[in-house]
C-alpha cells in the first residue's frame, strides 16, 4: 500500500499541472488588444532612429538596457529603485529612533509604527519597447511600450503619456539638430 502512495501522489501532481496548462497562454482577464495609451505612431520611415531615441530616453530615465535587437525592433531595459520616499540616511535615522522606542518598553508599539518608514522598498522596474514600420511603404513607425513594476504591469496612463511626450520632444530635437 505504501509503495502505491508515491506514484499516486506524483499522478495527482501531474493531473494538477494538466488542468492549469491551457491557461498559460491566455491574455490577462479583460485585456485583448494593447491599450491605446501604450502605443504611438511617428511620422518617419526611420525605425532605427526612433529605437535609438527610445534607448537614450530610457537612459535619461535611469534605465539599463538589457536587450536590444534593432533588426527586430526590440528593446528591453530595467532598473532597481527604492520606492521609500526617505533617503538612505533618513532611513537610518528612523531605524535609530525606532530602536530607541523599542528599548523603551511601553513605547515599543510606536517603534512598530515607524519601522516601515526605515525599511527600503526595492522595486524592479522594467520597460519593454517594440517598434514596427507601418503604413504604405513603411512611412510611419509604431512604438509600443509596456512598463512593469515587480512583474506587474503599470496601468497609469499618465506614465505612458509622459514617456511619449518626451520621446516626441527627443525626435523633434534630433531632427532639428542634424
Amino acid at each position: 500500500m505504501t509503495r502505491l502512495a508515491f506514484p499516486l501522489a506524483l499522478l495527482l501532481l501531474v493531473a494538477g499541472c494538466v488542468a492549469t496548462a491551457p491557461r498559460l497562454m491566455e491574455p490577462p482577464a479583460g485585456k485583448g488588444m494593447r491599450p491605446e495609451h501604450q502605443t504611438r505612431l511617428y511620422e518617419t520611415p526611420d525605425e532605427g532612429r526612433v529605437l535609438l531615441a527610445c534607448a537614450t530616453l530610457l537612459q535619461a530615465m535611469g534605465f539599463q538596457v538589457d536587450e536590444a535587437a534593432s533588426a527586430l525592433g526590440v528593446l528591453s531595459a530595467s532598473k532597481t529603485r527604492d520606492a521609500n520616499r526617505l533617503t538612505p540616511g533618513e532611513q537610518t535615522a528612523v531605524n535609530v529612533v525606532s530602536l530607541g522606542l523599542l528599548l523603551g518598553g511601553y513605547t515599543a508599539p510606536l517603534a512598530l509604527l515607524l519601522m516601515p518608514a526605515g525599511t527600503p522598498q526595492p522595486r524592479n522596474i522594467a520597460a519593454g519597447i517594440t517598434t514596427r514600420k507601418v503604413g504604405q511603404g513603411g512611412s510611419r513607425v509604431s512604438v509600443g511600450v509596456v512598463f512593469k513594476e515587480n512583474s506587474a504591469e503599470i496601468a497609469d496612463p499618465a506614465v505612458y503619456r509622459e514617456f511619449f511626450e518626451q520621446l516626441s520632444k527627443a525626435l523633434f530635437l534630433e531632427v532639428h539638430d542634424s
Partner: peptide, 14 residues
Amino acid sequence: GCAPLVPISQRVLD
C-alpha cells in the same frame, strides 16, 4: 504598508 512611497510616475520616469 505605511512606508512613505515615491509616486509611481517618479519611480518609472526618474
